[in-house]
Amino acid sequence: MVDNKKKTGWDVHEMARKVALDIPNGAYVNLGIGIPELVSGLVPEGREVIYHTENGLLGMGPAPEPGKENPELINAGKKCVTAVPGACYFHHADSFTMIRGKHIDICVLGALQVSESGDLANWSTGEPGAIPAVGGAMDLVAGVKTIYVISKHVTKTGMPKIVKQCTYPLTGKGVVDRIYTDLAIIDVAGEGLFVKELAPGVSFEYLQGQTEARLNQ
């Protein structure tokens, strides 16, 4: 039998797994809201990673069993979580000392746009009337040592998210180190964007066609 469902690209869980594979043992990691949250459940066997949530917890564990939720134990997305043995709580100034003071190793964030020089836009589309909300994103990109972006390669309407220059208001300039999409893993280096890995069924030419910025092989 011929398999007609030829697989193209990665689903969000495979994207999150790719990120998890790149997080080394012992890392302190902050995960953004949404797709980044999937990364926490996918750490390879034998590695120990400590998750930071900026509302005051190091050692964030998975969601609690139903019925065991505590509204005073939540993550940055205001969802109920757990604290692992060895966890600690702290106040906001300490939490952002960890972030801005370059104590957190890796942050995984979603994106509206990433530019070829690693600029990130992920907090506002700048539409008139929209209520701006920034949270901790600008602090994270200003202070965390390594910034990974995990995002669909294009928008729901098919517009490229990896662009020459961001048209949305910036979160930070030149801050992104690596981009994980459903089509590829792309490194941001000083000279531009370099494709590190192509997803199954994706050619470099196809990828370039889905990307406004110029890619290097």
């Binding site: 900026e54 106040h91 906001h92 100034a93 939490s95 952002f96 972030i99 801005r100 701006p132 909300a133 920034v134 949270g135 901790g136 994103a137 600008m138 602090d139 202070g143």
Partner: peptide
Amino acid sequence: LVPQGTLA
């Protein structure tokens, strides 16, 4: 609007 860490 103030970034969260700047607010803290």
